[in-house]
């Protein structure tokens, strides 16, 4: 089949979709805005639920993409597109026969929740900061010392009308459990508390990991959302919440406060969707044509959705969906 499919976005979804297209005899081109492929995977350290290094998964995907001589255009952003033509940020246009949209998600900007003091107080971090610190092999308080008490807060920038993010980001609960375990491994003498509204363990092995965190790692789970954080005179962070299971207000000071930031829709989803005739869900993510029988198809013929561009997902789901999106594109090309 002498057809060309443009895959917009070179994260896990984009790479997997391109691999599958190539396997089916279609010529894919990955168009990636950043200087390298990988998307968010570049920033994660080890992955839940198996503690597999993210670099192993990313390295293998990149190796396959290189080995199969898939064309990759990096440092190339897409401004608008239809199923037959993709317009780049610099105005160039690329012709194609179909498009797989795999532009992923954006991390919630924790500084918007001013009450938690991210960017204002020392020792308030996001889960993404912790991943970077773990990758660099050095997790510490701002002054370099070891934390004795750590709190992780779930649902920062998710399930929160105050910041216009009503959806659940799905992966942050399990990320919070994973990071709590990693922090406890690094600082066995520290007390680690997770503050949650609901614990959502949606994937295989996740509930088991949660239980292990409780029972083996002695991580304390407190049902209640932190209402505010304030700096103490000695550079720690004081937090307040209700311990809803005892019905009493609770406060404590901690050495590190970790905000488990959510996944939100990309800002350019609106413009991209309008140009291509796609629909957006109320969350801002791109809506599939049908949630059951067409969940990798969009409202526009010849445009397919892969990965977190359509909703928060883990890597396994992202990769499966990318395969399905590529298959749907191949079927479409056969028919057209």
């Amino acid at each position: 089949m002498n057809k060309r499919v443009i895959v917009i976005g070179g994260g896990a979804a984009g790479m997997q979709a391109a691999l599958r297209l190539k396997e089916s005899g279609v010529e894919p081109t990955i168009v990636e805005r950043e200087a390298e492929t990988g998307g968010k995977l570049r920033d994660w350290y080890v992955l839940f639920p198996s503690f597999t290094p993210a670099a192993d998964v990313l390295g293998e995907l990149r190796r396959r993409v290189a080995e199969r001589h898939i064309e990759v255009m990096t440092s190339t952003g897409v401004k608008s597109f239809t199923s037959r033509e993709v317009t780049l940020d610099d105005g160039r246009r690329l012709a194609c026969d179909a498009v797989v949209l795999a532009t992923g998600f954006t991390l919630f900007d924790a500084s918007l929740k001013e009450e938690y003091g991210y960017g204002l107080y020392d020792n308030v971090f996001t889960s993404a900061d912790i991943e970077r610190m773990l990758s660099r092999g050095r997790v510490a308080k701002a002054d370099g010392s070891r934390p004795r008490r750590i709190a992780l807060l779930h649902c920062v920038g998710s399930r929160d009308e105050k910041v216009c993010q009503q959806h659940c980001s799905r992966v942050c609960c399990i990320t919070g459990v994973k990071q709590a375990m990693e922090l406890k491994k690094l600082f066995p003498e520290a007390d680690v508390f997770n503050f949650y509204m609901d614990i959502r363990m949606f994937g295989p092995g996740y509930e088991e990991m949660y239980r292990e965190a409780q029972q083996k790692y002695n991580i304390h789970f407190v049902r209640g959302r932190i209402s505010e954080a304030s700096p103490t005179i000695d550079g720690r962070v004081q937090i307040k919440a209700e311990d809803t299971l005892t019905g009493r207000p609770l406060r404590m000071s901690v050495d590190m406060l970790v905000l488990l930031v959510g996944m939100r829709a990309n800002d350019d989803n609106a413009a991209l969707a309008e140009g291509a005739g796609l629909r957006r869900a109320p969350s801002g993510f791109i809506a599939p044509r049908n949630l059951f029988l067409g969940n990798v198809e969009s409202d526009a013929a010849g445009i397919f959705l892969a990965g977190t561009v359509s909703a928060p997902k883990n890597i396994g789901e992202t990769l499966n969906e990318a395969t399905a999106a590529a298959d749907a594109a191949v079927e479409y090309l056969k028919r057209s």
Partner: peptide, 18 residues
């Protein structure tokens, strides 16, 4: 004050139980 003050509370008994 009704608040549970984790900076003051002594978790020794609780730790023993756990």
């Amino acid at each position: 004050p009704r608040a549970i003050d984790m900076d003051r509370n002594n978790l020794r008994k609780s730790d023993e139980i756990l």
